Simulated assay, not measured.
Amino acid sequence: MADHPYSPGEGLLGPQTFMGLPFAPDAQGARAFVCGVPFDCGTHPTRVGARQGPAHVRRHSTTVRPFHPERGDTDWRQALGAVDVGDIAVVPSQIEVSFAAIERVMTRLQEAPGAVPFTIGGDGSVSLPLMRAAAARHPGLVALHFDAHTDCMAPPAPGLHNTGTQFWYAATEGRIDPARSWHIGMRGTLAVAGSFTTPQELGFRMLPLAQLLERGLRAAMAEVRASVGDAPVYLCWDMDVIDPAFAPGVAAPSWGGLSAREALELLQLLQGLNIVHVDINTVSPPHDPTGAAGSLAAQLLYEAMGLLHARRS
């Protein structure tokens, strides 16, 4: 008789990894690896906590089952030989030293041939050092950024960083190609003006949530795929693109967002793109008492593994 999938084992439990992946010190031999980036700037006036996001998403990844009969009935973890390499050592609120560490460690991890990073933030600021590492390995990098906000504001002073400046730096440093990059899902109120005009001036393509829903998910993503072509894609998914009814535990919630079903469908409609990095961020465990945001983030990360498997196979 086959073992029940929830039968107890005979050994010892190791560290908490994403969906029980093998823990490894590097990504050698893997085609996908999960890495936590437990950093936040520590400057939000009321909702600091995204630094705890990686552990929270791993904890709630136990709610994700590995087989998806509608999409091939394959365990994508095993098919990709995926591993969990743990967390990058950072110091929350210490921006410069932590950004340097994130870029340095991710650059080293990406030396493993064919290994695609699946990173768990952390607040949205971590996307900048991650994009810097990705751009060094993948010239012509394109960003697909799903978020309630553009995170593309000029810094208040040269060299300063916060959770709203990462895409401004990525564009002005030449790390990504703004003309083929997209901000998708923006909505709601903001603290300062210019959230749309600044990225437009830099050349980004913009698809606010109202326009996305008016066009329809399938038609809108067909346009995105056509514009991106086979360019290397940095897929950045900020969990506040989802309505707080479905993902309450985020750093900057904004009402009127995507439903869980719409988020999953949007991600699946990206099939075929040359995704070279998946960045899921902004889960804030202190504001996620039921684990809904952590569980949904874990499901989205695993669905993104399905995208990689479909392209590779």
Rank of each mutant, 00 (worst) to 15 (best):
D3E: 15
H4G: 02
H4I: 01
H4F: 15
P8F: 12
M19T: 02
A30C: 01
A32F: 11
V34N: 05
V37G: 01
H44F: 00
P45E: 14
A50T: 15
Q52F: 12
R58W: 08
R58Y: 08
T62R: 13
P66T: 05
G72C: 11
D84F: 08
P92I: 00
Q94Y: 01
I95V: 13
I95S: 00
V97Y: 00
A100V: 00
G114V: 04
I120V: 15
G121D: 06
A134F: 06
D147I: 01
C152V: 04
P155N: 10
P156N: 03
G159I: 06
T172N: 06
G174P: 02
I176M: 14
S181I: 05
H183N: 14
M186G: 02
M186W: 00
R187N: 07
A193D: 13
T198E: 15
P199V: 07
F204W: 09
P208D: 11
P208G: 07
L209G: 04
V228D: 12
D230W: 03
D230M: 06
V233W: 12
D238W: 10
V250N: 11
A252T: 12
A252P: 00
S254M: 10
W255P: 10
W255R: 13
G256K: 06
L264M: 14
Q271A: 15
I275D: 10
D279M: 01
D279Y: 05
I280Q: 06
I280T: 10
S284Q: 14
D288L: 05
L296R: 12
E303Q: 14
E303T: 11
L308Y: 14
R311N: 08
S313I: 03
